[in-house]
Amino acid sequence: MELLLNLMINGLATGMLIFLLAAGLTLIFGLMDVLNFAHGGLFAWGAYSSVWFYALTDSFVVAILGAIVTGIILGFITEKLIITPVYGNHIQQILITLGFMLVLTELLKVVFGPNQIPAKTPPYLAGSWEIGDVIIIKYRVFIIVVGFLIFGIFQYILKKTKIGLIVRAGVMNKEMVQTLGINIKNVFLYVFIAGAALAALGGALMAPYSGVIYAEMGMEFAILGFIVVVIGGMGSFPGSLLAAILVGLAGSFMAYYVPSLSLAVNMMLMAVVLIFRPQGLFKAKG
């Protein structure tokens, strides 16, 4: 019972981190039709800047906010400089965003040094709760709560606000949205920045969770993000949450019961979805 619960909390927490990365990816792909392989770089930059801000101010709240601001700034620069010139061309997008991913990763090493950096958990989130003989690690619960909170906020924006309505319409039919008088380029920019901020937040939350950060962490996590986008349905926000939780849980349980399969399980999940439901669990377009 205790074991199951812990595996579940562990899987959920990992799932939430993947969700924060995948949420941006799926919206960027769904709305802008852009394959952004640099997204993991924003995740890693979020992790590094949170650790940096935390060391500087000793405040985890400032660290998180600092990471989000970093994500916003980097998102703005990336969209304007890297993405805008290659709208509509997937091959160029793959090449240029992969290239930019490497640049972001190398820049981290230049700025913060090539070695792993330890990341602290703030004291009030460290440790665990003991309920009977069940031990629950606080920080994991914190990640799960933040993940659901972010999902709720964005779901509210998407469903209840005008800009959210326009984003959903744009995912379905970009051309039509423009003929209704909406400057889709601005919408693209906002969505890209929001996605970058979420990725950076994911990185910032990841840092204390794994205890160390390193420049390549972005790339490793981005692969999980892409798998989740495919499983959840490209462009579907709820789909990315569900798929991320699925991938997180599968990874957590497999790592315990069948460790040899713990890496392959995500690929297997994706393969099964692609065979039986190639559009993903949720369908956003159309």
Binding site: R168, A169, E175, M176, Q178, T179, L180, G181, N183, A284
Partner: peptide, 23 residues
Amino acid sequence: PTHGIANTGIGYVPEDQGIFGAL
């Protein structure tokens, strides 16, 4: 640009109607 043209006061009903299906 298209959105600017639309905002000068031109509305479009495309051949395929362009309805947002999930809205």
